[in-house]
């Protein structure tokens, strides 16, 4: 039972990585379909369309980031893996925001990206506006990332 702490902490890290990763995969996939469609008509838009396609990809990176910080803090990547159950649960809780918000925001951002790619196909000169609309969604992933980072870096110093 006393080893459950590390199990929960790693569960949290895995949750952050896979939830956010799934979201980004869905988002980038959706926008990729739209991007490929536009490119059949306008191959010259490749670089702009690629940027729009990649926008929902950042959540996966944020998930990876949290997973990595978490794993290095709990000692899975070398170090002392002795962790109390309470701390393990705290790490698990700290990983929840980026996992859950990453999943949903990446999917929604993917939808916004699809719409923006459609906009770009009709008005290639409006790239700035087309780009900023999906970026609005990402704010929430960043806020979740922020809470996850602050929480994880705070847990290390707690005497539990």
């Amino acid at each position: 039972m006393e080893n459950l702490g590390i199990a929960f902490a790693l569960l949290g890290a895995a949750f952050a990585a896979f939830m956010a990763g799934i979201g980004s995969a869905i988002g980038v996939g959706k926008s990729g379909e739209a991007a490929a469609g536009v490119l059949t008509e306008e191959p010259t838009l490749f670089s702009k369309v690629l940027i729009l396609q990649l926008l929902p990809g950042t959540q996966g990176i944020y998930g990876l980031l949290i997973a990595f910080v978490c794993m290095s803090q709990i000692g899975v990547l070398g170090g002392d893996p002795n962790l109390s159950l309470a701390k393990g649960l705290l790490y698990f809780a700290a990983c929840l925001p980026i996992g859950a918000v990453g999943l949903y925001s990446a999917i929604s951002q993917g939808k916004a990206s699809v719409a923006s790619i459609g906009l770009l196909a009709r008005r290639p000169d409006q790239f700035g506006k087309a780009m900023i609309i999906p970026v609005m969604v990402e704010t929430y992933a960043i806020l979740a990332l922020l809470i996850s980072i602050l929480a994880i870096s705070g847990i290390g110093g707690l005497a539990l």
Binding site: I61, Y62, L64, L65, F68, V69, L77, T139, I142, L143, L145, L146, I149
Partner: peptide
């Protein structure tokens, strides 16, 4: 003002992923 917290989040993202790569 809270929206500027992205300065921290993105800055950390660059640094930490770079550290992961090096490790």
């Amino acid at each position: 003002v809270l929206s500027y917290s992205r300065l921290l989040a993105l800055g950390l993202a660059t640094g930490i992923i770079a550290t992961v790569v090096n490790q």
